[in-house]
């Protein structure tokens, strides 16, 4: 009983402390910058979550299963919605300032997605050296030496992958145009 009382009192004190800290920290300009990013992410997650929640109504249901396969995703989406709303309303989630998303990272990601879409059409052994070569050149200032080393690396790396996976493990990579 004493332990329970102690835990209860401690919990109440900490809740009050957290509330006080959050209200005090709103004054900090860095954190206000942070709030916007948390808020935008909260809105994004709420929209995505709403879409997924709507999708759960199209899951198949069975009489013999009271909960159904929509139960678990709905519980998760409800928690996600609660947290997202808290982020949107409350803000000031942390004291650390987030870093901006860099353009080069996003360009690389779109390059990677293009690679995935082309993999089945062009084939691993043709597309991978080209992609790896471009990637290697892209990481460094452009010159003749860069191109030569990038080419050697890309072809060598693909050959190593061929040795390990195709010859060693018997995994056949997508052949693409060589099919």
């Amino acid at each position: 009983m004493r332990l329970f009382l102690y835990l209860q009192i401690h919990f109440e004190i900490t809740v009050v402390n957290v509330f006080m800290e959050n209200s005090n920290s709103k004054k900090d300009s860095d954190e206000l910058k942070e709030t916007n990013q948390d808020r935008w992410l909260g809105i994004f997650l709420l929209l995505i979550g709403g879409g997924l929640f709507w999708r759960t109504f199209y899951f198949r249901t069975f009489d013999w299963d009271t909960l159904g396969m929509a139960f678990w995703p709905r519980v998760l989406l409800a928690i996600l919605a609660l947290c997202s709303v808290a982020h949107i309303i409350k803000g000031n989630i942390g004291n650390d300032v987030s870093e901006p998303i860099q353009k080069r990272g996003i360009i690389l990601f779109f390059g990677a997605i293009s690679y995935v879409f082309l993999l089945d059409i062009v084939g691993f052994y043709l597309l991978t050296p080209i992609a790896a070569c471009f990637y290697s050149i892209w990481l460094r200032p452009f010159n003749k030496h860069t191109v030569i080393t990038a080419f050697i690396l890309a072809v060598g790396g693909t050959f190593v992958a061929y040795l390990i996976f195709e010859l060693g493990m018997g995994v056949y990579m997508p052949r693409g145009i060589f099919e």
Binding site: A132, L139, G157, V160, A161, F165, P174
Partner: peptide, 23 residues
């Protein structure tokens, strides 16, 4: 990193593909 990362990328792609043979 400009030597290391292209090789790692190739190994990651091949390794992940080899799990289930799925692009």
């Amino acid at each position: 990193k400009y030597y290391m990362q292209p090789i790692l990328l190739i190994l990651c792609v091949a390794g992940v593909y080899s799990l289930n043979n799925r692009i």
